[in-house]
Design a protein around this nucleic acid. Structure first.
Lengths: 334, 334
DNA sequence: TGTTAGCACTCTATCCTTTCGACTGCTAAA
DNA sequence: TTTAGCAGTCGAAAGGATAGAGTGCTAACA
C-alpha cells in the first residue's frame, strides 16, 4: 500500500529525506523546488507535501517551518531509495591486512574502522556460544598437582584455568585427555554446558575432572556470551543534534546499557541486515537509528557489527560500509 | 607558604569548598555564615573571601554571584582537609568474593564497583609488562605439525598462539620445552622481548622456534601494555555540570582518548595516589579532576584504578573507596 | 586594629513585548 | 491539475524593564 505513492510523491519524499540528511534542518517547498524539481511550482510541491504529511511520512515542527521526515519516511527511504554506493573498498581493505590472533581482535578493529569511516558510533557483539564449536579440550599437566584446562576452538582461541588433579597416576592425564576429546570435540559450547555427561562406572575416577572442566567451560561461556564493544561513542558530539541535551543523554544512556544494545541487535532470526529506526519498535530509540549486520568468518557466524546514530543518518554510506566490510572479513586468508 | 592562611581563613575556605561540593552553586558570605560561622558577621566573611580571592583560591563568576573554588582551592582542600572517611567496607568486600580467572577480571569488576559506589566514571589501566613475570613458557604439541605456545604468568594468565613446528622428531617438543623454560622462566615480559637470545650452535634447530615464541610474546606484550578500560561513562549525566554542553563534550573527549588517559594516569613515579585537579598541569582537564591509585595483588603491581569526574568531586569519598578497595584486592586469597 | 551595620552598586535571570522573516494553506484564475 | 498571489501563523531574535542576590565600601564601634 505504501507503493501507492505517485512517482512525483516519491521524488518529493526522496528529496526531502536527502535534503534533511544533509542539512539537518526542516526542508521547505522552496528547498525542494530549487534542488530537485525546478520545473514544478512551490505551490504544487506544497500540496504534495501536505498529502505526504497526511499519510504519516512527514512532520511539521511548526506551521512556519519546513517539514521533517518521520520514522516511516526513513523506513520508506531505506527500502526504496538506498542502493549500494561504492565507497573506496581499498581504503577499508588496507586497514585490515595485518595478521590477527583472535576473532575478537579482527572484529574490534573492524568496529573502529566502521566508526571512523562512517563517523557514527559503532558497536560489535560477539556471537553467542551456540555457534562456537569446540575443537578439543586438553589438560596440561603442570606437575605440581594441578593442570591447566585448555579449550581449543575453531578460531584458535583458547581459554585457561587451573584445576586440581585429584589423583596422580602416571598416565592419568593422558587417559583423561582421551576421554575429554571423545566427549567434547566437535560439540558446541552450549551443547556441552547444557548436557549431562554419563561416565561408565569404571571411569568414576574422572568424574571430578569432568565436573571441573565443565565448570571452566561454563564460565567461559558466561564471560564470552554476547559481549558488546563500543567504538567512537564521542562521535555524537559532531552531530548537530547534540546541541540538544536530551538527545545526548538519550544516546549515552542507550549506548551505556549493553544489555539494551544486545536485545536491539539480536532478535532478527535469519535476516542479515537489521535496521531499526526511531521509536518504531518501542525500543526507546527515539530520534536514533541502529543498523547492524551479521558477520561471518569463513562462513561461520562470529558476531554482529552495527552502527548507531541519529535517525537521519546516511544510510547509503552505512549500509555500503557494513556490506563491504562483511565481504572483506569473510574472505580474510588467515 | 600556603600555610600562611589564618585559622579562620582555613575555615572559610573549607566551608566554601564543602558547600560548593554539595550544592554546585556559587557560595555567598551568607551561606557560610549560616552553616559554618554563625558568630561572625557576613561583612567579616566577605573580607576574608575577598582576601582568599586575591590569593588565588577563589573565583567570582560575576559580581553579584557568590564565589567558587579555584583548582588551587581544591588542591589545598585535598591536602589539608581530606581525612579518611570510613565508607562501609563490607559493602565493597561483599562484591569481590567470587573467584576470578584473571587479574583483568578482578580489576574490571573493581572498576565497576568504584564507579557505582562513587557515582563517578572509573578507569582502569593494566600495568605494563615491566612488572609482569613469566613463570613458564611451554609448547603444546597438537600432533598435526603445529603447537600452541602457552605463556604462564604469576597470575595464572596464559596466552595462546599456534605456531608451526619445523621438524618432527620424537622428543623435539620436550627438548624445546626444556630450553624455553631455561631461557624464559622468571624473567619479565619486557626483558624477554628486548633481549637477544644466543643459542649454542648445536641447538640451531631450535632457532626458528625461539623466534616464533618471542614473536608471540611480543604480540602479547603489545596487546596487553597499558590497556585502559572505562566504566560508567554515562555517570556524567547525573552531575549538574552536564547542563553545560561544553562540559559534556570536554569530558567525553577526554574519556574517549585512551592514550590521553594513559598519560594522565602514568607519570608519577613512586607515588601511590595521584590527584590531578583542573587545568593545573595543562593537561586539558578543565573543570575535571582525576584521582588514581596503583593496585597490587600480593604485593605485585597490577595496574592503576582511577576516578574521573568534576573538579568539585567528593574527594573524601573517592579517596576512601580507592584506598579500601586497594587493601581488599591486595589481600584476596586466591 | 579588627569587626560590624548599612547602603549604594552591579550584574544576572526572567519575563514581556516587538519585530522580522520563513513557510504554509487557501483561493481564484489559467 | 497547476499556479500566482496573498493572508495568516508561528518561532527566533532583539530590546527593555524588573526583581533579587551579593558584593565592596564607608563610617562607626569595641
Amino acid at each position: 500500500m505504501d507503493d501507492k505513492l505517485t512517482e512525483r510523491k516519491k521524488k518529493v519524499l526522496q528529496a526531502l529525506v536527502d535534503g534533511y540528511i544533509t542539512s539537518v534542518e526542516p526542508i521547505s517547498s522552496g528547498d525542494i523546488q530549487e534542488k530537485y524539481l525546478p520545473n514544478v511550482s512551490t505551490a504544487t510541491i506544497r500540496s504534495e507535501l501536505s498529502h505526504l504529511e497526511e499519510m504519516g511520512y512527514l512532520i511539521k515542527p511548526h506551521v512556519s517551518a519546513g517539514r521533517v521526515p518521520s520514522s516511516k519516511a526513513y523506513r520508506y527511504y531505506v527500502e526504496n531509495f538506498v542502493e549500494d554506493e561504492l565507497i573506496d573498498l581499498e581504503q577499508l581493505r588496507k586497514n585490515i591486512t595485518k595478521k590477527y590472533d583472535s576473532v575478537v581482535e579482527i572484529v574490534k578493529d573492524s568496529a573502529k574502522i566502521v566508526s571512523d569511516v562512517t563517523n557514527y558510533t559503532s558497536m560489535l557483539m560477539i556471537a553467542n556460544s551456540d555457534t562456537l564449536t569446540i575443537k578439543d579440550v586438553k589438560l596440561l599437566d603442570m606437575f605440581d598437582g594441578t593442570a591447566l584446562v585448555l579449550i581449543i576452538t575453531d578460531s584458535g582461541v583458547i581459554k585457561d584455568k587451573e584445576i586440581k588433579l585429584p589423583k596422580i597416576e602416571d598416565n592419568y592425564v593422558e587417559v583423561a585427555n582421551g576421554l575429554l576429546s571423545k566427549s567434547f570435540a566437535g560439540k558446541t559450547l552450549s551443547q556441552i554446558v547444557n548436557s549431562q555427561v554419563d561416565l561408565d562406572s569404571e571411569l568414576k575416577d574422572f568424574k571430578q575432572i569432568f565436573e571441573n572442566v565443565i565448570e571452566v567451560l561454563s564460565e567461559y561461556k558466561k564471560s564470552r556470551d554476547g559481549q558488546v564493544f563500543i567504538e567512537g561513542a564521542d562521535k555524537i558530539f559532531e552531530y548537530p543534534e547534540s546541541k540538544n541535551y536530551n538527545n545526548i543523554k538519550n544516546f549515552m544512556t542507550i549506548v551505556g546499557r549493553k544489555d539494551k544494545l544486545k536485545t536491539l541487535m539480536k532478535d532478527d532470526g535469519d535476516i542479515e541486515f537489521s535496521i531499526k529506526i526511531g521509536a518504531e519498535d518501542g525500543e526507546g530509540l527515539d530520534n536514533m537509528a541502529l543498523v547492524s549486520a551479521k558477520y561471518h568468518i569463513k562462513g561461520k557466524e562470529v558476531g554482529q557489527l552495527g552502527v548507531i546514530g541519529p535517525e537521519r543518518m546516511d544510510y547509503k554510506k552505512v549500509l555500503s560500509v557494513l556490506k563491504q566490510l562483511g565481504k572483506i572479513i569473510d574472505n580474510l586468508d588467515d
